[in-house]
């Protein structure tokens, strides 16, 4: 069993956000997975900023 299979079994055993975590694990196995995850992280950050800007507009 390699590390990724080992981790997959752990993720399934914990049973929390299994699909999401397995999807991330699959990305980590990819050659460019790190870049993809970094992009996803940036996207989440941008989404927070954009949504906050909309709320700010409501207040102001």
């Amino acid at each position: 069993m390699n590390a990724y299979e080992d981790l997959e079994a752990k993720v399934r055993a914990r049973g929390v956000r299994v699909e999401e975590r397995l999807a991330i694990l699959a990305k980590l196995q990819r050659f460019d997975g790190g870049e993809q995850l970094a992009e996803a992280l940036d996207q989440h950050e941008r989404s927070i900023e954009e949504a906050a800007a909309k709320v700010r507009k409501v207040i102001r």
């Binding site: 981790l7 993720v11 975590r21 991330i24 989440h44 949504a51 909309k54």
Partner: peptide, 19 residues
Amino acid sequence: ELQGVIDAAAGFASDLEAL
């Protein structure tokens, strides 16, 4: 909507940290 995107980001962060 902001709550939703923060929750989604928190989910992502939780997944990365848990892994």
